[in-house]
Nucleic acid binder design. Structure first.
Lengths: 335, 335
DNA sequence: TTGTACGCGTTATCAA
DNA sequence: TTGATAACGCGTACAA
């Protein structure tokens, strides 16, 4: 059996109360007995039970980190940021996977509540209205990453999608492109709308008339396939550059280009979004809008800590950074 | 305040014992009161406290998943497998990051113990002797992924490194290569030794004399840089094919080749290990030895469940699969 | 069929 | 300076 404070009390010939105090350096206990008891605890291999402490204090010092899947290339670095800050603050992180499956989502919410987590961070999920409501019912602070939503307990850390798409589009414009395509993703309606907005804003500012043919919203499929389908923007509608919803889509497009002997970036410039690891490894390396994923995780957890300490917090819209690599280039004059 | 069984008891005019029983469908409680109480619990939004249950039963239904960093491309899919099986079995997963830092490792072990996790899975860590000892002290089942080690509580799921390297080398031999290099990684002494063994076994079987110059163990650095350095095997020692410790190393080598105008695979065949996501996206796509990462996670968690149910388990050495893509090719006759 | 009493390991209150 | 007692929320032996 595991050693408890009672065991130590027996061994020391004092009450378990004294042990509890001594171990936490309570000033009322004499230096001598404190030292003695701490030494004894060490010897006996005592480790306090967080379970008992939690029951007593109604705080578990745990948080729930909900992701659609940890295998999504966007997620791991965010998770690392969360876990790091949590660990330093004495919190532990439950990893919960929802798979964007309503049934699983309900299970997750229920589990979070049973576990009595002190707070929740939701990453890269579409938080539907029902799901969000269920989450709020738990009555603990919730931070949404890249998913603004309103509610008493809901807060958010998000990257500025509009700015990102605008920056990317302006980069293409500066390179002389005029027929710029956009490939969206219907599975992410909110971010998609924002990025589309940024794209359109940049075009408008440059007085480029918008061509609906250059906006492509592939039927829901995996992100990579969506990129493959987007080639039609180039083949059928003469796009000389394409802004993709995310890097996976961009890489999907890139691969299709290679299979079809379309030179990137000479014949077609491609730009992604996110800056996942793979973006730097493909060839040509992908120009993309970087989301500060590690920082987003850190900030989210920091926000949780502030909320738990009753500090006031404000939703954050973070800037990202355009990373220019080899997949975009000055348009060729003859085109 | 949260609803407890006592609240329900008061509302129903029965004892909390009856409530406890009714909620779990205890046969001794009349169908009528059971129904009534369950309905009441539902209405009042009752969710049992896992904390209290854990204290009572000395089981938390949690496991600790220890990784060096979740951002390692090898880890996420393993984690997904673990979490999935855990979730289905009613277990929750603590994500704990050790960063291969001895100090953090101690913190992690201490936290695991305080949290009273029922079991532990350690992924992609070098489990040093001290660390392993500390882990065993917790006295709960431990499954090591890709890291065999001996001990009363230690079990393992691992991929057959020897077979993997052998398969990869044989593939190169079958393509006509005779000067085949190996790039190892000193930060992973055990796997490295095994893969080197497989490589050597294949050469020996083919009666190729071994050239120590073709075995390169770069000074500890990040995996990608190690790959960059490995180019010397080709430039200085005329390797026509190189087997890399892992995909990151292989991709590092691939990139350096591109920068140095060395055509892959025409001038140099490259083969990786792991089959991380990026492997399929680089160009040429990487030939590599696939580790069944999702399955490894699932099996690890399944093994934990078996151990917790006192079933006997056996360490598993899993086969992997050679994935032939574009980075390896028949050697050119003129070479 | 239901209720009483106790214990899980810890902390807090009050008294000595 | 220390100890007895209760409480956190739940499950279980035993009694009714």
């Amino acid at each position: 059996m595991l050693v408890t404070i009672k065991d130590i009390a027996k061994a020391a010939g004092v009450s378990h109360t004294t042990v509890s105090r001594a171990l936490r350096g309570h000033p009322a206990i004499s230096t001598e007995t404190t030292r003695h008891i701490q030494q004894l605890a060490e010897q006996m291999g005592y480790v306090p039970s967080a379970v008992a402490q939690s029951l007593n204090s109604r705080q578990t010092f745990t948080i729930g980190m909900v992701v659609t899947t940890i295998a999504d290339p966007f997620v791991p670095l965010v998770a690392e940021g969360i876990e790091k800050v949590a660990q330093e603050a004495g919190y532990s992180v439950f990893l919960m996977t929802s798979y964007n499956d309503p049934e699983r989502e309900m299970t997750v919410v229920e589990t979070l509540q049973r576990r009595r987590v002190d707070a929740i961070i939701v990453t890269a999920s579409r938080v539907g209205s029902l799901y969000g409501e269920q989450l709020e019912r738990i009555q603990v602070p919730i931070v949404l990453i890249n998913n603004q939503e309103n509610g008493e307990f809901l807060h958010s850390i998000a990257v500025d999608d509009v700015q990102g798409a605008k920056l990317a589009t302006e980069h293409l414009l500066a390179l002389g492109h005029r027929r710029i395509g956009y490939v969206g993703l219907l599975t992410r309606p909110k971010s998609n709308a924002h990025r589309l907005l940024g794209y359109q804003a940049a075009l408008q500012k440059a007085d480029i008339p918008q061509d609906p043919n250059l906006i492509f919203l592939p039927p829901p499929d995996d992100d990579f396939r969506c990129g493959e389908l987007a080639l039609s923007l180039h083949l059928k509608h003469q796009a000389t550059a394409i802004l993709c919803y995310n890097d996976i889509t961009a890489i999907g497009l890139l691969n299709t280009c290679q299979q079809n002997q379309i030179a990137v970036p000479q014949a077609l410039s491609i730009i992604g979004f996110d800056d996942i690891e793979a973006a730097q490894y493909v060839s040509p390396p992908l120009t993309t809008f970087r989301q500060p994923r590690l920082q987003m995780g850190e900030l989210a957890m920091q926000m949780i800590l502030d909320l738990l300490n009753k500090k006031s917090v404000e939703d954050q819209l973070l800037p990202g950074e355009l990373i220019i690599r080899g997949s975009t280039v000055q348009i060729y004059p003859e085109q």
